[in-house]
Amino acid sequence: MAHVMTHPAPGGSQTPRRRRAWRDTLIGWSFILPNFLGFALFTLVPVLAAFALAFMEWDSANDPEWVGLENFARLWNDENFHVALRNTIYYSAGHIPLTLAAALGLAMALNRRLRGVEFFRTAAFFPYVTSLVAVAVVWNMLFNPTAGPVNLFLEAIGVQDPPRWVASTDWAMPAVIATSVWRDMGYYMVLYLAGLQTIPKEYYEAAMVDGANAWQRFWRITIPSLRPTTFFVLVMLTIQSFKVLDLIVVMTDGGPGRSTLVLAQLIFREGIREGEFGYSSAIALVLFLLVFTVTVVQFRINERRSS
């Protein structure tokens, strides 16, 4: 500042200002540099390398060989890929709306003055911080086809032939989805709680004066006011659902047969187990494009609604 003031020449002020802007930028960059370096080294470079690998054949020991689009041609005809893609979409189609609804419901229920509400909020959040392996093992026990509490309960209320859950190709995926909804809803509930608390009370008061019932207030005030939160939750849930791996590996390992085999698992299997890193990268690239496209569409829809 002192520098500029001692040289008040009218024509010369532009150069120092530009230089100063550059300095500020550089300083700014230098602050994020350590973080960026970590990201570049451990995320960006490997991701770009994986993109390149998708067009090669590589067994991890010898030099990779350029094969062009061969991996993608193989993908197109690979039944395992089709099965995994279908299952991933099935999982997402169940997990996204159910988690969203459960999280919103919980948040509405716990967003009121109630004795012990903190306890219930903590209880709802608890599954999210519990070790996933423990969650999967316990739910597997609950879903035990012969002696599990879920089926004992169903039998007690008169269900003649309860589903065999993880031991059945038709019911394994619903069992996984139920577990994952239970696990994730607490986290998204917290986001919704934050969203709910930003809605001014005056809106509701005004609506009540105008004679709106609870249902109308929910649809006309709560839902529209929560749109930014819902958008964020939807994007996060979509990304999370498409790359699901851990829960499925521990609960069913893709079985019975291929009934819960998902894309992330196929990537792991083809890459690490079969040593086909090129092919595995090609599947990963497809998964990336899939998630990317869905997210972009979500952003577009959100922009259109905002304007």
Binding site: N140, M141, N144, G148, R164, A167, S168, P256
Partner: peptide, 10 residues
């Protein structure tokens, strides 16, 4: 022991 049960309870 039936296979489904054996798998479910690991």
């Amino acid at each position: 022991l039936d296979f489904g049960t054996a798998t479910a309870q690991q």
